[in-house]
């Protein structure tokens, strides 16, 4: 347990430290949200139709891009060797890193999501559910994205490779979260989508660390 806290504090300090990871991720999100009306047309009717879905998709992309170097820095400078020889197994190390990623970057992005959706013209009534989906889905994004980040260790390509690995895995949470928000917007029952999103995130938290640890061990070998 002590090892967990020591690592979590280090990961959070590194995420919030110089370089401002969360700020860059939110800025990326803001850029995508700004480009959307420019690309799709700014007429309120059209924007309102796509706003919740686009905000949700932009969240997935921002989460993905911000965790690209989740393991890579530690791998490059040899710190991953030490993490592997610590008091807890690599499965817990991976889970801790993803959790820190979610706290430091996922939560700020989640706070920004309803803001962006509303600015794009989504009904303000949708904001609470959008926030809840973003908080919950962000966990899933972090733990599934971490698998891509760990698998691409030692590869010649970085970001684009991770995106190609991870985005197909993002299909279910994107569908469930988008579906829940859309269901509320059209007056249907939103709970199934929200529940499925939660189930997906929990499953990702339970199984993802095993894949990440296996990938890290492979990269270190």
């Amino acid at each position: 347990m002590k090892g967990f806290w020591v690592l979590l504090r280090r990961e959070l300090a590194m995420a919030w430290g110089r370089g401002g990871g969360p700020i860059v991720a939110v800025a990326f999100y803001a850029c995508v949200a700004t480009l959307l009306p420019l690309a799709a047309g700014a007429s309120p009717a059209r924007l309102a139709a796509v706003a919740p879905g686009s905000a949700w998709l932009a969240l997935a992309l921002a989460s993905l891009l911000s965790l690209e170097r989740l393991f890579e820095r530690d791998y490059e400078d040899g710190a991953l060797d030490q993490l592997a020889l610590g008091p807890v197994p690599l499965e817990i190390v991976s889970a801790t890193k993803c959790l820190a990623q979610w706290i430091s970057t996922g939560l700020p992005l989640a706070l920004f999501t309803p803001l962006a959706a509303t600015a794009l013209g989504a009904d303000i009534k949708l904001a609470p559910l959008t926030l809840a989906c973003a908080v919950l889905g962000g966990l899933g994004f972090a733990f599934v994205g971490g698998i891509g980040a760990a698998l691409s260790l030692g590869s010649r390509r970085g970001g684009v490779l991770i995106a190609v690995i991870v985005l197909p895995l993002f299909a279910p949470p994107v569908i469930f979260g988008g579906g829940a928000i859309e269901a509320l917007a059209t007056g249907l029952n939103w709970t199934p989508g929200f529940g499925l999103l939660g189930a997906y995130s929990l499953a990702a938290m339970a199984l993802g660390p095993f894949a990440m640890a296996a990938a890290c061990r492979n990269a270190l070998s």
Partner: peptide
């Protein structure tokens, strides 16, 4: 284990 790489974060 202390290798060539010291695992220190430069920033």
């Amino acid at each position: 284990m202390a290798g060539h790489q010291d695992g220190l974060k430069s920033n």
